[in-house]
Every structure is written in C-alpha cells, then in structure tokens.
C-alpha cells in the first residue's frame, strides 16, 4: 500500500522512545501540519519527577494543540498527546485515556508496551506505531500487538538513531513495515 494511503487510514499514530528520542521529536514536530487527520500519542521514558517542561518544550515546536494527558481526557484526532511522567498511559474503548500507576514494565513507567498494546485493542488496523531510539527493550511487545491487530509498525533506522538498541530489538523479533530515518518519518506522517 502506498505510504500516503497508510496514514490516511490511521485514526491514531503512536510514537514510543527512550534515550535519544527527544531530538527526533524536536525535528519531527515542526514538520507536522494542521489539521492532523489522526491523534498523535507520544510515550517517552522520562525521569519520574513531574517535570512539565517536556510538554512545554514540545509545544513550542508546533502550532498543533499538544497536551500532557490528564486522566480520562478524550482522545481527539488532530491533537498531540504526551504521556505524563510516572504513569502508564492506556486507551479505553470509549475513546478516552486512562492512567495507571502500577508496577514498572521494562524498568519503565510510562512503558511503551503498555500504551501500544492497549491502543492495538482499541484501534486494531487503524493504527501506526513507531519506535524510536533507545537502550531498552520496551516497545517490541507493543509493536507485536499492533501488528497482530492488523496495524502498521515502523522503527527508526538504527544507524540514524542515537541509540540503536530499541529499534534493532524490534527488527530482530519481527518483520517491520517501515525502517525510517527522520526525514522519511516526516514524509510518512504528513
């Protein structure tokens, strides 16, 4: 399927990342044009201090509405959502977010797997999951769940990532639909 057809069919795009991912988002966010036809949901491993600085930093880079999620916020296409520090971010069938402060998964809260798996339950084939730079194995199971539900999966090209371990881990586990550097990622998403 042509890449622009893929993004047309997506109700949500998930981006998960760890070490080295903030720079990718700082390049990606300014390239996105309003109105986004999908909800963009970002899950990054962060220090567990309640630093709202990351949301502010990202919001400066885009004219699209970008918020750090509060419990039970509705998921609206055209908006960008950031998972808050120290909570897992889940998606509910009724189109809202919910938060969970249970045990860390893959040493992480938020865990990328948790959000990706619950999004796969809700959106099935109308979902694209992208895994960025990182030194952790989080995200691989999440991509697997998205693929199983009929969605599309992409990883940052490991050579272009600051830390290639996370995307490489996913590629070793399953065939991925797209391996992209940052400019190719922008093309896919716009």
């Amino acid at each position: 399927m042509a890449e622009n057809e893929v993004i047309k069919g997506c109700k949500a795009v998930l981006i998960g990342g760890s070490t080295g991912s903030i720079d990718v988002l700082l390049s990606l966010l300014p390239a996105l044009r309003s109105p986004l036809p999908y909800a963009l949901i970002i899950v990054l491993h962060r220090k567990n201090t309640a630093d709202s600085n990351l949301a502010n930093l990202f919001a400066l880079k885009t004219s699209i509405s970008l918020v750090e999620v509060d419990d039970k916020d509705p998921i609206v296409p055209g908006n960008i959502y950031l998972a808050p520090a120290d909570y897992h971010l889940l998606l509910e069938q009724d189109g809202t977010f919910s938060l969970d402060d249970s045990e860390k998964i893959n040493y992480s809260r938020p865990s990328i797997d948790v959000t990706f798996e619950s999004a796969a339950d809700v959106y099935g084939p109308s979902l694209l999951g992208i895994l960025l730079s990182g030194a952790n194995a989080d995200g691989t199971n999440g991509l697997k769940a998205i693929k199983k539900a009929g969605g599309y999966i992409a990883v940052q090209q490991p050579e272009s990532a600051q830390v290639g371990f996370m995307p490489r881990q996913a590629m070793l586990t399953m065939p991925v639909d797209y391996v992209l550097d940052v400019s190719e990622m922008i093309t896919l998403l716009t």
Partner: peptide, 9 residues
C-alpha cells in the same frame, strides 16, 4: 473500573 487497566491486571 477502568477497563484497559483492569484487563492488564
């Protein structure tokens, strides 16, 4: 209870 979280539990 929030269903997504309950399902994980």
């Amino acid at each position: 209870y929030s269903r997504a979280s309950l399902k994980r539990r």
